[in-house]
Computed example of a mutant assay.
Amino acid sequence: MNQISPLERAIEYIEHHLNENIGLSDVSRETGYSYYHMTRLFSSVLGESVGRYINRRRLYNASEKLIHSNQRVIDIALDCGFQSPEAFSRAFKAAFGSSPVEYRRAGLDLVVNAKRELLPEDVAHIAANISRSPEFVTREETRIAGLRGTTSLSDNRLPALWEEFLRLHKGLKDLFPPPGAGYGICETQQTTYTKDGDILFAVMVGSPVDDFDHLPPALSLEQKVLRAGRYAVFTHRGTFANLVKTYQYIFGTWLPTAGVELDDREDFEVYEREVLSFDDPSNEVKIFIPIK
């Protein structure tokens, strides 16, 4: 019997408990993954949060029942895991642009905004983009100074944050010792789930410094200490538009079969080469995944 991946196990658990009051904590507990890594897994491979996935799966089931059964709307709402008909109606209208009653009356079967059940072969298809083996390294503690901001799955604000930091960096070259690599840190442990199910990440961009004592107070640079430990290092080359595919490979294909255990530290990106444009085919970034 083949061992299923953590993502497949999470999806299987969700499907078996879809109509119950479950959330990220339940899925994390079932898979043995922390909030941090389960959030990272879903957002990287499926492009959405656990909560949004569950909600859209429930809406898909509800839309099927509305069209293909004679159940009352209130019974469908409760059967599909919604706490009240009002909550169901709000979520349904947000997804489909019509109320459940209007949807049924019109005989619609438009589920493009819902989510059908993901099968194991779907997960494999989503994840199988890059086939690169990582380098394993042990890093010492690293101090990073830079800027902190937020980004989300639906609104990538990182380019603007990088642009702001690079302008600052040019005037402070003496502050940052060589090599002047840029670091991008996804602080998923400081994650906010928005009302519409999106994920708002805290992120930091910066460069390594020898210490924090000599940072100019007037600049209000953010400080971050990356803990020492072991990492699996992947290299992404080419346009950053495909960076998500590299993460899909890491979390969806490599991790399930790698025989390693994730450590509860933050993953981060290191840019050792100058980035001339987002779509430059010569772009290169190293992705550090913390492992035990």
Rank of each mutant, 00 (worst) to 15 (best):
C186Q: 11
S154W: 02
I144P: 01
N156H: 08
G180A: 08
R139M: 13
E102K: 15
S99P: 04
I185R: 10
R143W: 04
R104A: 04
E121G: 07
T191N: 09
Q189K: 13
G146C: 05
D109N: 13
F176A: 07
V205M: 06
Q189W: 09
I74P: 06
R139C: 15
A124D: 11
F96P: 01
I76P: 01
S69W: 03
N113H: 08
E141Y: 04
Y103N: 01
S207R: 14
L200S: 12
D122N: 14
G197N: 11
A91F: 07
A145W: 03
K195S: 14
S207M: 15
G182Y: 07
G171L: 09
P179E: 00
T138F: 09
T191S: 12
F92Y: 05
K195P: 03
F82L: 09
S133T: 11
G81Q: 09
W162G: 00
L110C: 12
R139V: 01
G81I: 07
R90G: 07
I130A: 06
K170M: 12
D174G: 11
L78G: 01
E164M: 08
Q83Y: 07
D79Q: 14
N113G: 02
H169F: 15
G171Y: 08
C80M: 09
E140G: 15
F88M: 04
I185N: 06
K115Q: 15
G149E: 02
L119W: 04
R90F: 02
E164Q: 13
R90W: 02
G206W: 10
L119A: 10
K170V: 11
Q71N: 15
A87D: 07
A91D: 12
D79A: 15
F82S: 05
D174T: 09
L110N: 13
V101Y: 11
R157E: 06
D122V: 06
S84A: 05
H68Q: 13
Y183E: 04
L147G: 03
K170I: 10
S99D: 00
A145M: 02
N129V: 05
E187R: 15
V209N: 04
G107W: 00
C186G: 12
S69N: 03
E135M: 14
L110D: 15
L175E: 08
F96R: 10
F92H: 04
S131Q: 08
T151D: 02
E140D: 14
L153V: 06
F176E: 12
A160T: 05
E102F: 13
N129P: 08
A160I: 08
E86F: 11
I130P: 02
Y103C: 10
G197W: 03
R148C: 12
S152D: 00
G184K: 10
V111C: 13
G197T: 04
Q83R: 15
S152M: 00
I126P: 06
F201S: 00
S154D: 03
R148D: 08
A94W: 01
S154K: 08
K195M: 13
L78S: 14
K115W: 14
G206D: 00
D155W: 00
V111F: 09
G97S: 07
